[in-house]
Amino acid sequence: MIRIPPWRCLTCRVSVIKTGKRRLDYTFHFVDVWTARDELLDGAWLTIRLSAVSMILSLLVAVVGAFGRTSGPKWVQRLVAAYVEFIRNTPFLVQVFVIFFGLPGIGIRLEANTGALIAMVLNGSAYTIEIVRAGIEAISHGQVEAAIALGLHRVQVFRKVVLPQALRAVFAPLGSQFILLMLNSSIVSVISADELTAAAQDIQSRTFRSFEVYIVTIGIYLVLSLSFSGVFALLNRAFFPRLEAR
């Protein structure tokens, strides 16, 4: 047996609560988690990358989608609205199942991480379309009319006048959406994409230290979401200083 010095043992015994016959008597073994720390960190890194890439892709889809939703022809508007409604009213887990298990049935075979990414983009863009649309609709109509009066084309109006202002207005909700996307990404562990939750399940099934592994993993997610919300607050202040501050 490996001897671990007491100050580094990461093991503590709890036997405190006594209720009737039942007695909590459990020794925490964080050693197993500590040994597998590289796996958890790799998982966390993939979670970050997966969320970042899917956020960027959803934002691209959302800009096009929101343009179609607000100023496209009637049938495009209906189509985008139906897409948004359907995605927002069904669970992400089921969407993952349809994409990862359903698509191979019609001849499209996906690798786990690719399937996860596609599911996250499809899901994320429905929410992002709504956010960007809200930003577009918050812009006063005078802006658009002025741009048209200046002779700009409809796409130019959208790209140069509407979009920059809309993105600025919705920067904060987009930040929260990114964090939601990141937390939701834990669900893709069911198709064994190797992100943080899947790494945790892997360690759990090897060591049977489920409580220790999951509490540490939850801690990592908490650190990630807190730091990202901090980063977004800073970015928001850096990119878009308050108007009155100028």
Binding site: L183, I187, S210, Y214, I218, Y221, L226
Partner: peptide, 16 residues
Amino acid sequence: GTPLLLQLFLVFFGSD
């Protein structure tokens, strides 16, 4: 700030 899935895991396995 943490995924619901892991909260469920923690309750399920933690109670064990």
